[in-house]
């Protein structure tokens, strides 16, 4: 019997939850705010879906309802990607060690 590809994706999902669990516990508490902003940025990889949605169909039908939702999602995700990574970078740059 063949295994449904869904099961593979479910396996990846569950294993990633475990990876996330151990990785996040090892994050130092002083970096919890950057952790939140960077998780925010990476969850905007949903832009992948937005791009597929926006580019679906032929060139003549590029502004059908489904494409428009795709374009809107691209803007939202792009705000998040740029905003999230840059604000994380800004924060991380402020963490300095004691000058000896």
């Amino acid at each position: 019997m063949e295994i449904d590809p869904f099961i593979f994706r479910l396996s990846i999902f569950i294993l990633s939850i475990f990876v996330g669990y151990y990785v996040v516990w090892s994050v130092t508490p002083s970096l919890h705010t950057p952790l939140m902003s960077v998780t925010n940025a990476i969850s905007s990889v949903i832009i992948v879906g937005a791009i597929i949605a926006a580019l679906a169909g032929s060139s003549e039908s590029i502004f059908e309802t489904s494409n428009i939702f795709g374009f809107l999602a691209i803007i939202l995700a792009a705000v998040n990607i740029f905003g999230g990574f840059l604000v994380t970078q800004r924060m991380l740059q402020m963490y300095k060690k004691k000058k000896k």
Binding site: F6, F13, S16, M36, T39, I42, V48, G49
Partner: peptide, 23 residues
């Protein structure tokens, strides 16, 4: 991610989901 069958989204979703839950 499951809908789009996209590994990057599934991995990220799981990471962010567990991160938020731990916090």
């Amino acid at each position: 991610g499951f809908t789009l069958e996209n590994t990057a989204l599934i991995i990220t979703g799981a990471l962010v989901g567990s991160s938020g839950a731990i916090l």
